[in-house]
Simulated assay, not measured.
Amino acid sequence: MNKHDGLADWMSKLPAELTTVPLWNLAIPGSHDSMAYCLDTSGDLEPDIPSWYPNLEEVFPGVYKYIIKRWTSTQALSITQQLDVGVRFFDMRIARLPDEDDGTLYFAHILYTTATVLRTFRQMSKWLAEHPKEVVIISCSNFNSMSDDDHQAFITQLMEIFSHTLYAFDQNDLQGGNSNNLPMPPTDATWWTFRTPAFYVDYTTDPNPNVHCIALYYSVLFWLQVTPTLQDCWEKNHQVILSYADQKQAANQELLWPEIDYWKANPKAGDEEVGYGSVAEKRAEEVVEYLTNRLQKEGRDEAKFFVSGLNVTAVEYDVLGDPLGELVKWASDARPQLMQWAIKQQPGPGHNCINILAMDFVDQEFVQTVININTGKENNTGKNDCE
């Protein structure tokens, strides 16, 4: 038996009262840059990255890609191992190799991965078929070097791979109506189009302001009706919530969800001189400060997925100052502070409640901690009082 089998089906083992809670009101464990465990040093670097990455070649000729890999590898577990230990949010950075014309897509984090996108998603689909009560949230973003044709071909492939397991963002498009039995809006394509939640109207031939108000009204109604819970997913045999960050390419695709907001702290300049226990610990302090302040001052959007990024980031002077270092050591040094912040949080609909917690180098301990937040086992309150 796999040593991680205990968490492979954790969603099906949640208390009954949590299975009817909207998924954006649960604490869900996720992985940051989920595929950056198989970066390929034999290929090129991504285009449009900070210039200091390729400049490393001048300082460390012959080995600079290995140095980059040490600082940009964010996970140690494969995608199926992450699923086995209970990770349920996946941060997928999609890219196409600029010089290849065969349409193959990869993942990327400065370097490209050896794993292809389609093979990885097929592995995930196979795993889900073996765990029918587990639900995953997949966030597709970046899309470096992808053309419009690449996007449309990729979306078609996603529909084929996950097919009936996709939980639609716009349920009403599939049902041909709405649960409130409201009259359906006109569907004349000459003046009526909308895509929730962007709330835009194509008034190409009829600039009637009443029409625009009706369009916004129905957009809001349709948006409010989509509230995924575990129970709802189980009843519909849906296991995949698929977010596509490029909303232009995803327009009119009712199965695709909009981009999921990822809250991530940016490193502050001058940290190399702080005299702290380690720069990684200082970065962890910055992450905690950023997440705390944003939750308190700005707060989360209700009825919407969002990610709190429990990950530290290395910048140019970190790598140049310690070329033999690696991100995994930083993650280990930063982890105690980040986990201490996490266990003090609570999920729920409140303004300063958390939802998805994503971390580098995820493991069973991290996942179990996040799961326990749902029942109050970590903060010892046994209740949810975030506001």
Rank of each mutant, 00 (worst) to 15 (best):
N2M: 05
H4K: 07
D5W: 00
W10T: 00
S12Y: 03
S12K: 04
K13R: 15
A16W: 03
L18E: 02
I28F: 06
S31D: 03
M35T: 08
C38I: 10
L45T: 10
L45P: 06
E46I: 04
D48V: 09
D48M: 10
I67F: 10
K69Y: 08
R70C: 06
R70S: 14
W71S: 04
W71L: 07
T72M: 14
T72P: 00
S78W: 03
V87Q: 01
F89E: 05
D91Y: 02
I94Y: 00
R96Y: 00
L97T: 07
D99I: 03
E100R: 15
F107Q: 06
T114Y: 13
T114W: 09
L118A: 13
R119M: 06
R119G: 06
T120V: 12
M124R: 03
W127C: 05
K133H: 15
I138E: 03
I138H: 03
S139P: 02
S139C: 09
F143W: 11
M146Q: 09
M146Y: 04
D148Y: 12
D149Y: 09
A153W: 02
I155W: 06
M159W: 04
Y167I: 05
N172A: 11
N178Q: 12
S179Q: 14
P183I: 07
T187E: 14
T190S: 15
W192D: 05
R195D: 15
T196M: 13
A198H: 13
Y203T: 12
Y203A: 14
Y203L: 15
T204Q: 15
D206K: 11
P209M: 09
H212N: 06
C213P: 00
L216S: 10
V220P: 00
L224D: 11
Q225H: 09
T227W: 03
T227A: 09
P228F: 06
Q231P: 02
C233W: 05
E235N: 15
E235I: 05
H238S: 13
Q239F: 08
V240Y: 03
S243F: 06
Y244T: 01
Q247E: 13
K248A: 12
A250N: 02
A251P: 00
Q253F: 13
L256D: 03
D261C: 04
K268N: 08
D271I: 14
E272N: 12
Y276E: 12
G277W: 04
A280N: 08
E281T: 11
A284P: 01
E286T: 12
L291F: 01
T292R: 10
K297V: 10
K297I: 10
E302C: 04
E302W: 05
E302A: 13
E302K: 14
L310N: 05
V312Y: 03
V312M: 06
G321Y: 07
D322Y: 08
L324S: 13
L324F: 08
V328Y: 04
L338Y: 07
K344Y: 02
Q346F: 05
G348W: 02
H351N: 13
N352I: 00
I356A: 02
A358C: 05
M359Q: 10
D360T: 06
F361D: 06
D363H: 08
F366I: 09
V370H: 05
I371H: 03
I371T: 03
N372V: 02
I373T: 09
G382C: 10
K383W: 08
N384D: 08
C386N: 04
E387F: 08
